[in-house]
Amino acid sequence: MINEIITNTIMKKSNIAIVDTGSANLHSVLKACKKVGAMVSITSDEKDLYKSDGIIFPGVGSSDAVMKSIKKKNLITPINNLMKKNHPFLNICLGMQILFDSSEEGSEKGLGFIPGTVKKFSRYKKTENLKIPHMGWNSVNFKSKHMVFKGVPNETKFYFVHSYYCLPKYDENSFATTDYGIEFCSVSIKNRVIATQFHPEKSGEIGLIIYKNFIQYTVI
Protein backbone atom coordinates (compact mmCIF):
# COMPACT_ATOMS: atom_id res chain seq x y z
CA MET A 1 0.00 0.00 0.00
CA ILE A 2 2.86 2.35 0.85
CA ASN A 3 4.38 1.70 -2.56
CA GLU A 4 1.07 2.49 -4.16
CA ILE A 5 0.99 5.76 -2.26
CA ILE A 6 4.40 6.65 -3.57
CA THR A 7 3.81 5.66 -7.18
CA ASN A 8 0.49 7.45 -7.25
CA THR A 9 1.91 10.59 -5.78
CA ILE A 10 1.81 13.84 -7.65
CA MET A 11 2.74 14.00 -11.24
CA LYS A 12 3.26 17.69 -10.83
CA LYS A 13 5.85 18.44 -8.15
CA SER A 14 4.62 20.39 -5.19
CA ASN A 15 6.88 22.52 -3.06
CA ILE A 16 5.99 22.18 0.62
CA ALA A 17 7.26 24.40 3.42
CA ILE A 18 7.11 23.16 7.01
CA VAL A 19 7.00 26.05 9.46
CA ASP A 20 9.85 25.69 11.96
CA THR A 21 7.89 25.95 15.18
CA GLY A 22 10.74 24.43 17.14
CA SER A 23 8.42 21.55 18.00
CA ALA A 24 9.58 18.04 18.69
CA ASN A 25 7.59 16.50 15.84
CA LEU A 26 9.03 18.50 12.93
CA HIS A 27 11.09 15.54 11.82
CA SER A 28 8.16 13.14 11.74
CA VAL A 29 6.28 15.57 9.52
CA LEU A 30 9.32 15.97 7.26
CA LYS A 31 9.71 12.21 6.96
CA ALA A 32 6.03 11.72 6.11
CA CYS A 33 6.26 14.34 3.34
CA LYS A 34 9.35 12.70 1.93
CA LYS A 35 7.70 9.29 2.09
CA VAL A 36 4.90 10.48 -0.21
CA GLY A 37 7.39 12.10 -2.56
CA ALA A 38 7.05 15.81 -1.81
CA MET A 39 9.76 18.41 -2.24
CA VAL A 40 9.90 19.70 1.27
CA SER A 41 11.91 21.86 3.62
CA ILE A 42 11.71 23.12 7.19
CA THR A 43 11.86 26.91 7.25
CA SER A 44 11.31 30.02 9.30
CA ASP A 45 11.88 32.38 6.39
CA GLU A 46 8.75 34.17 5.15
CA LYS A 47 10.08 34.18 1.58
CA ASP A 48 10.02 30.38 1.57
CA LEU A 49 6.44 30.45 2.80
CA TYR A 50 5.36 32.79 -0.03
CA LYS A 51 7.21 30.71 -2.63
CA SER A 52 5.68 27.42 -1.45
CA ASP A 53 2.70 25.65 -2.99
CA GLY A 54 1.54 24.62 0.46
CA ILE A 55 2.48 25.06 4.09
CA ILE A 56 2.46 22.53 6.91
CA PHE A 57 2.20 23.95 10.39
CA PRO A 58 3.02 21.26 12.97
CA GLY A 59 3.15 21.72 16.69
CA VAL A 60 3.44 19.85 19.94
CA GLY A 61 4.29 21.17 23.38
CA SER A 62 2.52 24.29 24.58
CA SER A 63 0.52 26.84 22.58
CA ASP A 64 2.35 29.77 24.18
CA ALA A 65 5.71 28.32 23.11
CA VAL A 66 4.49 27.93 19.52
CA MET A 67 2.99 31.45 19.38
CA LYS A 68 6.14 32.97 20.89
CA SER A 69 8.28 31.04 18.42
CA ILE A 70 6.45 32.35 15.32
CA LYS A 71 6.18 35.84 16.80
CA LYS A 72 9.93 35.95 17.34
CA LYS A 73 10.48 34.90 13.74
CA ASN A 74 8.07 37.59 12.47
CA LEU A 75 5.88 34.98 10.86
CA ILE A 76 2.49 36.00 12.24
CA THR A 77 1.70 38.57 9.54
CA PRO A 78 2.85 36.46 6.57
CA ILE A 79 0.96 33.41 7.88
CA ASN A 80 -2.21 35.45 8.41
CA ASN A 81 -1.90 36.99 4.94
CA LEU A 82 -1.33 33.67 3.24
CA MET A 83 -4.28 32.05 5.01
CA LYS A 84 -6.58 34.90 4.00
CA LYS A 85 -5.36 34.66 0.41
CA ASN A 86 -6.40 31.00 0.18
CA HIS A 87 -2.92 29.52 0.36
CA PRO A 88 -3.14 25.79 1.24
CA PHE A 89 -2.22 24.97 4.84
CA LEU A 90 -2.16 21.74 6.80
CA ASN A 91 -2.14 22.58 10.49
CA ILE A 92 -1.52 19.72 12.88
CA CYS A 93 -2.32 19.37 16.61
CA LEU A 94 -1.14 22.61 18.25
CA GLY A 95 -0.94 23.99 14.73
CA MET A 96 -4.73 23.65 14.71
CA GLN A 97 -5.22 25.13 18.19
CA ILE A 98 -3.30 28.33 17.46
CA LEU A 99 -5.74 29.14 14.62
CA PHE A 100 -8.38 30.05 17.21
CA ASP A 101 -8.81 33.25 19.23
CA SER A 102 -7.48 32.07 22.58
CA SER A 103 -6.60 29.00 24.62
CA GLU A 104 -7.14 28.03 28.25
CA GLU A 105 -3.62 26.65 28.12
CA GLY A 106 -1.80 29.95 27.95
CA SER A 107 -1.93 33.69 27.91
CA GLU A 108 -0.74 34.30 24.33
CA LYS A 109 -3.49 35.19 21.88
CA GLY A 110 -4.07 32.82 19.00
CA LEU A 111 -4.06 33.81 15.33
CA GLY A 112 -7.82 34.31 15.44
CA PHE A 113 -8.24 32.94 11.92
CA ILE A 114 -11.06 30.64 13.03
CA PRO A 115 -13.46 32.15 15.56
CA GLY A 116 -13.57 30.12 18.76
CA THR A 117 -11.58 29.03 21.77
CA VAL A 118 -9.41 26.14 22.96
CA LYS A 119 -10.47 24.40 26.18
CA LYS A 120 -9.01 21.79 28.51
CA PHE A 121 -10.59 18.34 28.66
CA SER A 122 -12.46 17.71 31.84
CA ARG A 123 -11.37 14.55 33.61
CA TYR A 124 -14.74 13.59 35.00
CA LYS A 125 -17.34 12.85 32.36
CA LYS A 126 -20.10 10.30 32.08
CA THR A 127 -19.35 7.29 34.27
CA GLU A 128 -15.63 6.89 33.82
CA ASN A 129 -12.63 8.99 34.67
CA LEU A 130 -10.86 10.11 31.54
CA LYS A 131 -7.11 10.23 31.32
CA ILE A 132 -5.49 13.49 30.25
CA PRO A 133 -3.78 13.78 27.79
CA HIS A 134 -6.19 12.15 25.36
CA MET A 135 -3.55 9.80 23.99
CA GLY A 136 -4.00 7.05 21.43
CA TRP A 137 -6.17 6.03 18.49
CA ASN A 138 -9.70 7.39 18.24
CA SER A 139 -12.38 7.58 15.56
CA VAL A 140 -12.95 10.62 13.39
CA ASN A 141 -16.48 11.26 12.14
CA PHE A 142 -16.55 13.38 9.01
CA LYS A 143 -19.56 15.60 8.38
CA SER A 144 -18.88 16.03 4.67
CA LYS A 145 -16.33 15.33 1.95
CA HIS A 146 -13.09 17.06 1.05
CA MET A 147 -10.29 16.22 -1.35
CA VAL A 148 -7.72 16.06 1.46
CA PHE A 149 -9.72 13.22 3.08
CA LYS A 150 -10.38 11.30 -0.13
CA GLY A 151 -10.00 7.56 0.49
CA VAL A 152 -10.41 7.98 4.24
CA PRO A 153 -13.54 6.10 5.39
CA ASN A 154 -15.76 7.67 8.01
CA GLU A 155 -14.88 6.60 11.59
CA THR A 156 -11.27 5.86 10.65
CA LYS A 157 -9.05 5.84 13.72
CA PHE A 158 -6.20 8.32 13.97
CA TYR A 159 -3.50 8.93 16.57
CA PHE A 160 -4.16 11.76 19.02
CA VAL A 161 -2.14 13.25 21.85
CA HIS A 162 -3.45 16.45 23.42
CA SER A 163 -4.97 17.84 26.61
CA TYR A 164 -6.87 20.75 25.02
CA TYR A 165 -9.49 20.75 22.26
CA CYS A 166 -10.83 23.35 19.83
CA LEU A 167 -14.29 24.74 20.17
CA PRO A 168 -15.18 26.64 16.96
CA LYS A 169 -17.74 29.38 17.43
CA TYR A 170 -19.52 28.44 14.22
CA ASP A 171 -20.55 24.92 13.32
CA GLU A 172 -19.49 25.50 9.71
CA ASN A 173 -15.84 25.45 10.88
CA SER A 174 -16.21 22.00 12.42
CA PHE A 175 -15.53 19.51 9.64
CA ALA A 176 -15.17 16.34 11.76
CA THR A 177 -15.65 15.33 15.37
CA THR A 178 -14.28 12.78 17.83
CA ASP A 179 -15.71 11.46 21.08
CA TYR A 180 -13.67 11.78 24.26
CA GLY A 181 -16.11 12.36 27.05
CA ILE A 182 -17.52 15.05 24.80
CA GLU A 183 -17.84 15.25 21.04
CA PHE A 184 -15.03 17.65 20.12
CA CYS A 185 -13.95 19.17 16.81
CA SER A 186 -11.09 17.05 15.44
CA VAL A 187 -10.87 18.62 11.97
CA SER A 188 -11.53 22.24 11.14
CA ILE A 189 -11.48 23.78 7.67
CA LYS A 190 -11.62 27.40 6.61
CA ASN A 191 -10.64 28.70 3.18
CA ARG A 192 -7.86 26.30 2.17
CA VAL A 193 -6.60 25.80 5.71
CA ILE A 194 -7.07 22.17 6.78
CA ALA A 195 -6.49 21.65 10.49
CA THR A 196 -6.37 18.27 12.23
CA GLN A 197 -6.15 17.69 15.96
CA PHE A 198 -4.74 14.20 15.32
CA HIS A 199 -1.33 13.39 13.86
CA PRO A 200 -1.64 12.02 10.32
CA GLU A 201 2.14 11.44 10.31
CA LYS A 202 1.70 9.04 13.22
CA SER A 203 -1.46 7.33 12.00
CA GLY A 204 0.06 4.69 9.76
CA GLU A 205 -0.74 4.32 6.08
CA ILE A 206 -4.12 6.03 6.23
CA GLY A 207 -2.36 9.08 7.66
CA LEU A 208 0.08 9.12 4.75
CA ILE A 209 -2.92 9.21 2.40
CA ILE A 210 -3.85 12.56 3.96
CA TYR A 211 -0.33 13.84 3.31
CA LYS A 212 -0.50 12.61 -0.26
CA ASN A 213 -3.92 14.20 -0.79
CA PHE A 214 -2.81 17.48 0.75
CA ILE A 215 0.23 17.64 -1.47
CA GLN A 216 -1.96 17.10 -4.55
CA TYR A 217 -4.40 19.69 -3.21
CA THR A 218 -1.62 22.32 -3.16
CA VAL A 219 -1.06 22.08 -6.91
CA ILE A 220 -4.62 22.09 -8.24
Binding site: H27, K31, K34, K35, S203, G204, E205, L208
Partner: peptide, 8 residues
Amino acid sequence: VSSEIFIP
Protein backbone atom coordinates in the same frame (compact mmCIF):
# COMPACT_ATOMS: atom_id res chain seq x y z
CA VAL B 1 12.77 3.11 11.69
CA SER B 2 11.02 6.48 11.86
CA SER B 3 11.65 7.09 8.16
CA GLU B 4 9.81 3.89 7.30
CA ILE B 5 7.14 3.43 9.92
CA PHE B 6 4.56 6.04 10.71
CA ILE B 7 3.18 5.04 14.08
CA PRO B 8 4.31 6.40 17.45
